[in-house]
Write a protein that binds this DNA or RNA. Sequence first.
DNA 1: TAAAATAGTTTAGAGTATTAACCATTAATC
DNA 2: GATTAATGGTTAATACTCTAAACTATTTTA
Lengths: 152, 152
Amino acid sequence: MNALDSSAEALRQAVEVFWDVFPPLWQRIRAHIHQTARERFGVSVEQFHILRHIRRGQGSVSELARVKNISRAAVSQAVDALVARGLVSRATDPRDRRHIHLALTESGQALLEAIFDETRQWMMRLLAPLAAEEVATLTQAMALLRKVEEQQ
Amino acid sequence: MNALDSSAEALRQAVEVFWDVFPPLWQRIRAHIHQTARERFGVSVEQFHILRHIRRGQGSVSELARVKNISRAAVSQAVDALVARGLVSRATDPRDRRHIHLALTESGQALLEAIFDETRQWMMRLLAPLAAEEVATLTQAMALLRKVEEQQ
DNA sequence: TAAAATAGTTTAGAGTATTAACCATTAATC
DNA sequence: GATTAATGGTTAATACTCTAAACTATTTTA
């Protein structure tokens, strides 16, 4: 087996492991947020993600639709619900009146922080058994994934 | 800062990075599968995941519902569609006639393999720029996550 | 044997997605 | 400068997937 083969083999292996590890992990995190967000804060997982994206600075319907890979219509409807609940505000951009700028209201910010706090604590408990080097490995791996994502 | 504080801080950091890296990555993989599975093979992402779980040996409605954290009713409906398309078979267990054993048909197996092949190639292209040690780090990290998951 | 538990399905309704058609505004083109 | 094209967003009709609740069938338990 030459070098190319073996590196391709390692890659293939990594992809296989990915399918073993990730979907259930994500499923579980999602289920936790579903519980927390829904039962304690009255928002759905989808709404949580929209709030999260707005906080990250994705402040328009089109941008949200792009990063979430869903239609603008779907985002528009989701935002409707959040505006109706007073968690998000819409403001027309005076310099280009087609744009409507989305932002978290104070109560939206507070709610999102509360969900994040809860979830962070839960995840920290989940990862607590890991040794310091193991946590470092995780952090490194995520940095690599970020690089992979950005490079595209 | 004592040792406990600093390790807690590292954990918190890891969790923060997680939220930066993962959701978009997963979103992107999901979008790719959505395209591939839907356009080229005519199954939804959800159906793909059901097929995947059945292949992994989760061979009953209740078990699927448990691992996917959804209701049995939802699984039952999803399975209906897959059976109607000839991708999955139902067979009553003669030893406990309440159980209905789910299995991939040949065409279900072939379809799932085709989607996997396509996706694997795509993911390998995505990860191709990484160096060998970097791939190793990823694999290690995933092993750690698996451990975390199982331990619970 | 009667009651409880388990496995699965059906039905009615909610939530979230899509596509297509639309309005308003801005940019490009002739 | 007027017309056309492109962009941002919403609305309406519809599809898909989920849930809860009620149901059937079967097995376990008390």
